[in-house]
Design a protein around this nucleic acid. Sequence first.
DNA 1: CATTTAGGTCAGGACGGTTGACATAACACA
DNA 2: TGTGTTATGTCAACCGTCCTGACCTAAATG
Lengths: 175, 175
Amino acid sequence: MSGLAANKTENSAGQPVFDPPEPDEDLDFPLVELFFFAYRDFIADADGMLEEYGFGRAHHRVLHFVNRRPGMVVAELLEILRITKQSLGPVLRQLVESGHLVQIAGPEDRRQRLLYPTQKGRNLSIQLTHMQSRRIKGAIEGIKNKDRESIRDFLFGMIEPEERDLVNGLMEQDQ
Amino acid sequence: MSGLAANKTENSAGQPVFDPPEPDEDLDFPLVELFFFAYRDFIADADGMLEEYGFGRAHHRVLHFVNRRPGMVVAELLEILRITKQSLGPVLRQLVESGHLVQIAGPEDRRQRLLYPTQKGRNLSIQLTHMQSRRIKGAIEGIKNKDRESIRDFLFGMIEPEERDLVNGLMEQDQ
DNA sequence: CATTTAGGTCAGGACGGTTGACATAACACA
DNA sequence: TGTGTTATGTCAACCGTCCTGACCTAAATG
């Protein structure tokens, strides 16, 4: 009974089983899967380092964006991360307790809590970004026509159109 | 007290606060962030459709790889997904109960449970991949020199080197 | 003064993962 | 035959990261 080979359609228990999908110009399996694997390994770089501090990916994201935008208020952070304040709460508290971030009352609106990295938080964030940048740099060096612009345009094109202004705002400090 | 502007280093409660990181050739903030946002929106496409079935991302990944490799055994799936069998268990059971997958005893080694999609499972997987492929296609169309090869090489270069053979094996059916 | 806003917190729950321990069926081998 | 190993499944306990709902304080706003 070798009838279940991948190229034969077969029946079992009344349930039909099927061959692998045919190649289709609108089914780009290779790029879909490469994106999945690439992101998995891209994020794994940082996971190990974060583990040493007892941090997870949520801490990483908060640390990253506070370093990118020192003085950010909590509401801005919630908007970027698209999570609720109840979910941000513990993460923020741990980062403050561990001395990676500080919260300072807003100079004009004292209800606000401006978020700043400490030197410790800045160092960790830079280390994490450094690891990820090295992987990106290595990947760009591996392609035929070393075209950083194309990669940037491609990734930007992957972002939901309505989101692009928000992301562009975040990027305005660099090109 | 407007001394907390982003370009001034300041002290508060004994904790130093800092300026945004300087541009650095080994700190590619734009691409790091674009990768984050791109993956977020790439994955969000599928989430809505999955929600209608009460499925999450774990179901998506299982459904995808079983469709790509019909007849895959459980151990192979665990290796690709890098999760434990305890964590796969409920996901697999739900997909079988909902009629998206079937499990068939291996014809040679009857301990094995060969995984096959049903027509229902195949349809859903193709729908999901179609959405994601359209986003990728749109992103490639948006770049200057429409070079699919470069994108593929870039994403492949992002994958952990020791993992590349495994991923290449998965891709061998297409170019 | 009343209302709204920024932020924090408590309670309860869901999902998706983990480790450890154990069970079952089937294969492999001496 | 028996013994050990392999493929898979399951029970229990736990963790991280999200959620909703409800409620609170302090400060700004009218």
